[in-house]
Amino acid sequence: MAQGRSSGAIVTFGVLSIAVFAAAAWASHKAWLDLGDPSIITGYVLLVIMLSLGFFNVRKRMSMVPLGSARFWLAFHVAAGLLAIAMFWLHAGLVWPIGLYERVLTSLFYLVSITGLLGYGISRMLPRRLAQTEIEIIYERIPAEIAEIREKVEALVFECTEKTGSDTVAKHYIGTLNWFFSRPRFWVSHVVGGDAAGHWLRGPGVAARRYLNDPEVEYFDQVIELGELKCLIDRHYACQGLLKKWLLVHVPLSMAVIIMAVWHFILVNVYSL
């Protein structure tokens, strides 16, 4: 239901984008035929698109007033972002410009575009993987959660040592497991959907098990079970983190691009028009 609506919005904005592109291309061609500068029209369109892309962020800050649903804004953002890339090529006429300033601007623009495309990709992909962990945790609570698991593990290890009088589990914890429980691990593997964490846990993680007697194994298995839980939390940490951190690149670069584009706009007006 929601799926249908939002892909409808994407299609609508997509069609609209194609229409805008066609109109801009036609108008600029018309200008060129008339011995005008075709890049003026495309430049203005591109500037407006860039500013409206940037307005997505402003919209997010002004969620107290009805400025249209963010879903439509995102659909618009995606469609307009793709349009901006096409419009950029139409405007520049080249994939790689000649001037130094233009090259910096282009590099930044490409970086913003690429991060945007990647960001959209992971926004579609990672939530599914997160849903499949069957647990749900708020990103900001992950450190506390890990701390709690660690406390619990350490309590188990301590209790095991106390009750059984053997420090095999404790030594294994200090030597090996502590590394794993101290903080989120296997970030890359979790992001790309691998199971390095589980693999590690089933390998070096349980290496000490063969040296344990039955009472110790009981404690140890609880520790490993908590380890498996932590794998899921690590997955949330990695995936949720990536879902947030890509914006650390995309947003500041967008800001830079917009400022550079505005300066470019001023330069063109001062020097050329």
């Binding site: 650390l248 947003v251 500041p252 670069l253 800001m255 830079a256 400022i259 550079m260 300066w263």
Partner: peptide
């Protein structure tokens, strides 16, 4: 970062 990027560019 955003403010920094803006300041740096300017």
């Amino acid at each position: 970062f955003t403010m920094l990027a803006a300041a740096l560019v300017v």
